[in-house]
Nucleic acid binder design. Sequence first.
DNA 1: GCAATTACTGACTCGCGATTCAGAAACCCC
DNA 2: GGGGTTTCTGAATCGCGAGTCAGTAATTGC
Lengths: 240, 240
Amino acid sequence: MARPADPNARAALVAAAREEFVRKGLKGARIEDITAACGLSKGAFYLHFASKEALFGELVEAFKAATERLRSERLEVMERFFAEHGPLEARDVTGCTERYERFVALQAEGDVRTLELMWAYRDVVAVLMSGSRGTEFESLAWWLVEQEVERVGEDFNRLQRTHACRPDVPAEVFGSLIVGTHVLLAQRMSRMERKPDLEAWARSLHLLIREGSLPKKKSSRRPTRARASSRTRSTSRSQP
Amino acid sequence: MARPADPNARAALVAAAREEFVRKGLKGARIEDITAACGLSKGAFYLHFASKEALFGELVEAFKAATERLRSERLEVMERFFAEHGPLEARDVTGCTERYERFVALQAEGDVRTLELMWAYRDVVAVLMSGSRGTEFESLAWWLVEQEVERVGEDFNRLQRTHACRPDVPAEVFGSLIVGTHVLLAQRMSRMERKPDLEAWARSLHLLIREGSLPKKKSSRRPTRARASSRTRSTSRSQP
DNA sequence: GCAATTACTGACTCGCGATTCAGAAACCCC
DNA sequence: GGGGTTTCTGAATCGCGAGTCAGTAATTGC
């Protein structure tokens, strides 16, 4: 019998495929298993997709588009900030001025959005990172990583140039730190049932990273924020 | 003709295999390509190894053994340190006492050794991380990662308990930060021709991370160290 | 009711790469 | 210089899973 199937077979296949991909990787996932999970036969798959890669390709396109949108938005936000407020100086940081607060808040918001994106596509990320060897998607993961390392590194560089950031650390090490952590967290997410408290993660990362990257002037205690525990939103981003 | 081959065919095969594995992943590497790179025929492979997995298994075993040796040595070093010097207090850190210096140096040395290990096995690490999906080695990578996250997290915890470390960051986030960075760096290494300055990397990471994890007491400038640039060895590790 | 349409089935084909194995080929020692 | 040993060759075999396609069943339109 054919009929008594899911009226929305295509969507069901996508969902089943995502699960199989996470479990087995792109190559390891077998079409028969995917269709079987929907109560369909192997052949039915080809009524909806040209191939396994085509299905994954759709997911990847969506992820790539979302990633690029977020990336350019974050770039634009930074541009606008510096256009409006001028460059951050060391005294902004040590004195914790209004604009510095603003800056930190912007970075914080951006980072949470990045983590949200990771969560939404955690399965795709996991497959791209470690389950796409030998496929057309193999290089994409590292391309995206490099791009992100660069973006973070450039933000960092900009602050270094105006002495708003310690000068004795190469930007690419800083970038690897941020991105490496995000990648590892995404891997963890792909094995989680429920969405973790991403804001808390971002907050913790910021506390660790930002304060470590303050210029070592008078090591002043900023008058400031961060006792960071129960408040829902408080922290910042990486660069400061 | 058989004879005029490399007198040490086995070693040559291992070397060629490592290259192919990095390039294509465990599954993607074809035995014919590996043997061809040594001027041998497909069949010759099976005179030296039972299978592709057996060859990789040997590499993995060596890596695992080295990793576990280093891990237990680092654990032991910490045990001994705390047995000899007692726990670190907040004032050790803010005052930058002798024992704190010692502690930092120990962690620094350990971290460099970890990076050295990564370098020596950078190909194996890269394959384990993203080229072993669907093989018997699939889970090993994350097992090792988890183990390392735990070790780092416990060191961090110990310092938190004695207030020698900020209390407002979960140890597992801290662990992910360190290990995620190491993993990303290992991936980069696997695509490098020459060995990078690992001590410089470790140094940079420490500067970023350690100072960010100081207890936020009087935010005192430690009298101290770190201008960190030309000196060959100066920094510390993660936890402090 | 029956022809056209849609949604699916599952046996079959096909290519790829691992693994086998019946021989060479080189070497060694007497 | 021949028997024995070691090392290697490459055609043949095998298994696996993607992709094909002729056929089947529910459904819809008339």
